[in-house]
Design a protein around this nucleic acid. Structure first.
Lengths: 94, 94
DNA sequence: AATATTTGGTTTATAAAATAAACTAGTTTA
DNA sequence: TAAACTAGTTTATTTTATAAACCAAATATT
């Protein structure tokens, strides 16, 4: 009846990150942090988990001497997000 | 940007329970258990939490000599559920 | 008539997740 | 050159979810 909700996406912060990334080409760590209101530590951990699942791609570089982390959603990530949203809708439409 | 998601409702099982209860007048423990696929223990714990928050009402009685637990959603619960759904939608619509 | 099984749960213990605090490595500013 | 800031990561703590064990009473079995 109630299909399982992908636990990787059923997390407030990771869901916010994915919701954000699905609308943009890429986003910087500090931008995501600001938009989600997350702490650096929490964001760092959650981004790593999303990367591990190959839902996002993380690219590290330097800009003006400072480290710069850019994230973008992958095809796998888009698919997982869309499926999660569909299942979620099936919950709340009852 | 991302409003906080009510943590009491952002739980797979509790969300399923609320989604179920919002559509019916009341439901028995075993019915909820069957529909959600939860174990008795987990369901018992989660129902208690929802009751504590006054999102549901739990009525205990006996039927054919056996204990019978009936649950129903409260006005507070309906309000919380609807607000949660609205915030959730604001996440996934970006 | 014991004893085993089932019902309808609750309680407790364990595993997993989220979050906060502390730390790293380097940069800039005073 | 020392203090403060950037941009994070790692580790520790707290919280949450889940599973396992348990309980009381009822019914079924031998």
């Amino acid at each position: 009846m109630f299909k399982p909700l992908n636990p990787l996406l059923h997390s407030e912060l990771r869901l916010a990150v994915m919701s954000l990334l699905i609308g943009v080409k890429e986003a910087e760590f500090s931008f995501i942090k600001e938009k989600t209101g997350a702490t650096s530590g929490n964001l760092s951990v959650q981004l790593s988990k999303l990367q591990e699942a190959q839902y996002i791609k993380i690219e590290k570089s330097f800009k003006d001497n400072y480290p710069l982390t850019k994230c973008s959603i992958t095809v796998i990530g888009i698919k997982a997000f869309e499926e999660y949203v569909e299942i979620l809708k099936s919950y709340i439409k009852k």
